[in-house]
Design a protein around this nucleic acid. Structure first.
Length: 793
DNA sequence: CAGTGAGCGAGCTTCCGCTTGACTT
C-alpha cells in the first residue's frame, strides 16, 4: 500500500498487520521539467514530466517493493492532487491494471481503512486530467509572465496565479490606508447611580464631530434629569466554532500564541509525527465518528451530560477538497502532552477547540438600557451581558482580529423603566477614526482562503516567497503621539484636560515594498485577467467540468492560452520599462529636476542628470509613491560634516540601521529620541563618541590566549570564540570565569548550535543549497557575488 | 553595517501543490 505521508504509513501498517507493507511516496514523485517550460505547446499541451531529483531514491524503492507485491494498493488522498499522485505512481512504477487497486479514506481509523480495502475503485482519469490542467495552467502563467518582468522591471522577479494576487491584496490595502483621511471625534461615556446606590456605566452611541458639539452635550447633561426610558432583556445563544482547519489554526495560533504561520505549521508537523494530532494540512471541518464519540465521553465524564452536544460541521470554504479530517487530537482523552512550550500550547489550543466544538451552546442574557435626558434627544445606552449557562465557553473562546476591550459591565443592576438616575461623572474623550487594518500573515491567509486562492499546503510557503522576493515585508512600526482632549463633567463643573496617547502602532504587519507596488501595477495594467480576484475561482469552475468529464483538459487550457500568450507577446513588444519613476519637482538650490525611482540597489532619489547627477537611497519606511519633495531633498543633506575632533573629521550620516556619527572609521549610532541627524551639534556628537569608547572599554571583561573572550553585550555578558557566541548561565559571574570553565560552556553548547541555527541562518543556508544545486556548474565566485547583491536588495 | 546608481555581455532567474529531511562553502 502506498500513501503520501510516512507518518500515516506507520499508523496504517499497525492497523493492517502482516501481509501488508505500507510505504510512502512523500507527496508527488514526478513534476513538469524543472528547467524548461515543460509543456509542449505545439502538441496539444503535452506535459513533459520528469522524476523530481529528491524522489529518485524513493521511486526506486517503491518500484522494487511493487515487484514483490501481489497487489499494489494506491491509497493517496482523495482529492485532485492525490488522484494525480496515484496515476503518476501507476505510470512510473509500471504497474499492471490487474493487480493495482485504488482506495481512499478520509480518516485514519482501522474501520475506515478496512472499509476502503473492501471497496476499491479505478483511478479516476478525469480527476487526474483536472490536476494536469491545474499544473499546466500554473506553469504557463508563472513561466511566461515572470520573464516579462525580468525584461521590463528587474531580473529574477516572479509572477504567479497565487503570489501575484496575494501581493496585490497588500498593495491595495496600503493604498486604502494612504487615502484614508483621519478624523477626530468625541465619544461620551458616563457613570450613573440608581436609588439604591449601585452604579452603572453607559455610553452615547452617537459620535460628536467636534469639541464644541461635545461641550454643548455635556452642558445639557449638567442640567438634565436622567430617566430610564427602556429596559430590554433578550436571551441569546452563542455557538462554538468548528474544529480547526489549517487556515483557522494559523489564525488562532497567531492571535493567541503569537506564532507566525510557518512556525505554526512546523510545530503542528511535530505533533503530527508523534501521532498526537491528525493531519495538519486540511480544509475540512469534519470529525470522524470515533472522534465525536470519544469527545462526548470525555465531556460527559468531566463536565456532565448537559455540556455535551455532538455536532457535525459543514465547510463553507470555496474550493475545499476535504481529503482529510479537521485538525484534532488523535486521542480525546489526552488533555495535555509532553513537549516544548510551543508544542504544549498548540496542542492545548487544538484540544480545547475540538472539545468545545462538541459542547453545548452558551446561553446568555443581553440587557439593553436607554437612559434619556430631560433636555436633549440623544440618550445614553448601557449594555450588559450575563452568562446563564457557560456551555462551550467553559473551555474555549474564539478570538477575533478586531477585538477591542468592551467597556460594558457584565451584570447590570436591577433597574426599571421610569427609574430616575443620578449622574456621577460624565466625560467626552477625543478619538480618531482608524484606517483599515494592515494584514498580518494570518489575516492574509484568511483572505486568501476566502478568495479560494492557494491551498492548506501552500499558505505558509507563499507568504515566505513573496517576502523573499522583496514584494512585501513584515514589520513593526512605532505609533505617533497625538494630543487627546478630554472634557469632564463632575458636579457642576466642566473641565478640559489634554493628554498624549499613542496611535497607529503596528506589530508584525505586512507592508508592500516599492517593488511590490511597481510589479502589481505593471501586472494589473497588462495582465488584468490573471490579477482579477476571480481568476482562480473561474479556473476552478473549469477544472470541475474537466473532473466531471464534461470538458477535455487540453481544450480548456487552449482557450486560456491563445489570448494569454498574445498578451505576453504584445506586452514584451509594446510596454515601457517600469521603474516606478515619479517626478517630485525641482531642487530650489540648483533648479534641477528631482525624481524618485527603483535603481539597481533599490529605491532612490535623484537630482538632475548627466554630469552633475546626484543619488541618495530612500529610507526604511519611505515609499516612492508617498515621499514628498522635501523628504527627498532631506536625503541629500547627508553625510553632513560637523567639524573636527582630535584632528579627524566628524560627520553624520544615515545608514541601513538608522542615523550614525562617523569619526576616524568608527561608527556610533545616534541616541533615539534625543538626537536628530539634521540638528545634532559637534558637541553632542563628541559626547556620543566618548560614550561609545567607554562602552567599548567595558566590552572586554576577560581575554584568554587561545582567542576566547568574555564580552559585555546588549543582553549581558557572553563568551565569544571562533566568531560564535555562547551563553553564560546566570549562576556564574562573568568576571570570575576561568579558561577551563569557558571551554566547558562552549563544548556544552556547541552541538546545540549546529542543530538549532537561528531562523535567519536556516533560510540563508537553504537558499544557498538550492542555488548551489541549480547552478552547480557556475563558478563559486559568481555565486557569492550573486548572493551579496541579493542581500543588499 | 554605515556603498552603490557606468557599460558590456554571458548565463541565469520563474510557477503551484504534494510531502519531508539535510549538505559543504
Amino acid at each position: 500500500m502506498i500513501v503520501e505521508s510516512p507518518a500515516k504509513a506507520k499508523t496504517i501498517e499497525k492497523f493492517l498487520g502482516k501481509g501488508f507493507t505500507v510505504k510512502s511516496s512523500f507527496g508527488h514523485i514526478r513534476d513538469l521539467e524543472k528547467k524548461d517550460l515543460g509543456v509542449d505547446i505545439q502538441h496539444n499541451f503535452q506535459p513533459q514530466y520528469e522524476i523530481s531529483a529528491d524522489k529518485k531514491a524513493i521511486v526506486k524503492e517503491l518500484r522494487d517493493a511493487a515487484k514483490e507485491a501481489k497487489t499494489v494498493w494506491l491509497a493517496s488522498d482523495e482529492d485532485r492532487e492525490g488522484e494525480a499522485i496515484a496515476w503518476h505512481l501507476f505510470e512510473v512504477l509500471k504497474l499492471k491494471p490487474e493487480n493495482t487497486k485504488r482506495i481512499v479514506f478520509h480518516e485514519i481509523t482501522k474501520d475506515a481503512i478496512l472499509y476502503a480495502i473492501e471497496h476499491p475503485r479505478e483511478i479516476d482519469k478525469n480527476l487526474v486530467d483536472a490536476q494536469q490542467a491545474r499544473r499546466v495552467l500554473d506553469r504557463l502563467v508563472g513561466f511566461e509572465v515572470s520573464p516579462v518582468l525580468w525584461k521590463k522591471v528587474k531580473p529574477s522577479l516572479s509572477a504567479g496565479r497565487v503570489q501575484s494576487v496575494a501581493v496585490k491584496l497588500i498593495v491595495e490595502r496600503e493604498r486604502e490606508i494612504n487615502a484614508f483621511k483621519e478624523q477626530a471625534y468625541y465619544r461620551v461615556t458616563g457613570q450613573f447611580a440608581t436609588a439604591d446606590k449601585s452604579t452603572l456605566k453607559a455610553e452615547v452611541q452617537e459620535r460628536f464631530p467636534s469639541q464644541t458639539d461635545a461641550l454643548h452635550y455635556l452642558e445639557a447633561c449638567r442640567d438634565a434629569v436622567f430617566t430610564v426610558k427602556e429596559v430590554e432583556t433578550k436571551p441569546t445563544v452563542r455557538k462554538p466554532a468548528p474544529p480547526f482547519t489549517t487556515s483557522t489554526l494559523q489564525q488562532e495560533a497567531s492571535r493567541k500564541l503569537g506564532l507566525s504561520v510557518s512556525q505554526t505549521m512546523a510545530v503542528a508537523q511535530k505533533l503530527y509525527e508523534q501521532g498526537l494530532i491528525t493531519y495538519m494540512r486540511t480544509d475540512s471541518v469534519n470529525l470522524s465518528a470515533l472522534a465525536i464519540r470519544t469527545a462526548k465521553e470525555v465531556i460527559c465524564e468531566t463536565l456532565g451530560e448537559k455540556y455535551s452536544q455532538p455536532r457535525n460541521f459543514a465547510t463553507k470554504t470555496k474550493g475545499a477538497q476535504e481529503a482529510h479530517e479537521a485538525i484534532r487530537p488523535t486521542y480525546m482523552n489526552r488533555p495535555a502532552i509532553e513537549g516544548d512550550r510551543n508544542e504544549q500550547q498548540l496542542y492545548d489550543l487544538i484540544y480545547k477547540r475540538t472539545l468545545a466544538s462538541q459542547m453545548a451552546n452558551a446561553e446568555l442574557e443581553r440587557t439593553h438600557i436607554d437612559i434619556g435626558l430631560s433636555n436633549h434627544p440623544t440618550p445614553f445606552t448601557a449594555i450588559g451581558e450575563v452568562v446563564k449557562f457557560d456551555g462551550f465557553l467553559r473551555v474555549y473562546r474564539e478570538s477575533y482580529d478586531d477585538e477591542t476591550e468592551d467597556e460594558h459591565t457584565d451584570l447590570l443592576p436591577a433597574i426599571n423603566q421610569g427609574d430616575q438616575l443620578a449622574r456621577c461623572i460624565i466625560s467626552a474623550q477625543e478619538q480618531y477614526t482608524q484606517h483599515p487594518p494592515r494584514y498580518t500573515e494570518a489575516s492574509l491567509v484568511k483572505k486568501m482562503e476566502a478568495l479560494g486562492i492557494g491551498r492548506p499546503s501552500t499558505y505558509a510557503p507563499t507568504i515566505t516567497t513573496i517576502q523573499n522576493r522583496g514584494y512585501i515585508l513584515r514589520e513593526s512600526r512605532e505609533g505617533v503621539e497625538k494630543p487627546v482632549t478630554t472634557l469632564t463633567l463632575k458636579g457642576n463643573d466642566i473641565k478640559t484636560s489634554t493628554s498624549k496617547k499613542m496611535f497607529g502602532a503596528e506589530k508584525k504587519k505586512l507592508f508592500p515594498s516599492d517593488m511590490g507596488m511597481v510589479v502589481t501595477d505593471f501586472l494589473s495594467a497588462h495582465f488584468q485577467h490573471i490579477m482579477d480576484y476571480n481568476f482562480t475561482a473561474e479556473a476552478e469552475e473549469n477544472l470541475d467540468r474537466v473532473a466531471e468529464g464534461k470538458e477535455e483538459w487540453q481544450k480548456m487550457i487552449g482557450e486560456f492560452y491563445t489570448p494569454f500568450h498574445e498578451t505576453v507577446e504584445s506586452t514584451l513588444k509594446n510596454s515601457e520599462r517600469n521603474s516606478g519613476e515619479r517626478i517630485l519637482g525641482t531642487d530650489p538650490a540648483t533648479g534641477e529636476t528631482v525624481i524618485v525611482r527603483i535603481g539597481r540597489f533599490g529605491p532612490m532619489a535623484q537630482i538632475g542628470e548627466g554630469e552633475n547627477v546626484r543619488y541618495a537611497g530612500l529610507q526604511k519606511g519611505q515609499l516612492l509613491e508617498t515621499i514628498t519633495l522635501e523628504e527627498a531633498l532631506a536625503l541629500f543633506k547627508f553625510p553632513r560634516k560637523l567639524g573636527e575632533y582630535e584632528g579627524k573629521e566628524v560627520s553624520v550620516g544615515i545608514g541601513r540601521f538608522g542615523p550614525y556619527i562617523k569619526h576616524n572609521n568608527m561608527f556610533v549610532s545616534l541616541k533615539k529620541g534625543e538626537d536628530e541627524p539634521g540638528t545634532i551639534t559637534l558637541e553632542t556628537a563628541i559626547q556620543r563618541i566618548e560614550e561609545k569608547r567607554e562602552s567599548d572599554r567595558k566590552k572586554v571583561i576577560q581575554s584568554f590566549d587561545n582567542g576566547v573572550q568574555v564580552l559585555n553585550g546588549r543582553f549581558g555578558p557572553y563568551i565569544s570564540y571562533n566568531k560564535t557566541n555562547y551563553k553564560i548561565p546566570k549562576t556564574l559571574k562573568a568576571e570570575e570565569l576561568t579558561l577551563e570553565k569557558c571551554m566547558e560552556l562552549i563544548e556544552k553548547e556547541a552541538p546545540k548550535k549546529e542543530k538549532k541555527p537561528s531562523a535567519k541562518a536556516t533560510t540563508a543556508s537553504k537558499a544557498k543549497t538550492t542555488t548551489a544545486t541549480k547552478t552547480a556548474k557556475t563558478s563559486s565566485t559568481k555565486k557569492t557575488k550573486k548572493e551579496s547583491t541579493k542581500e543588499s536588495n
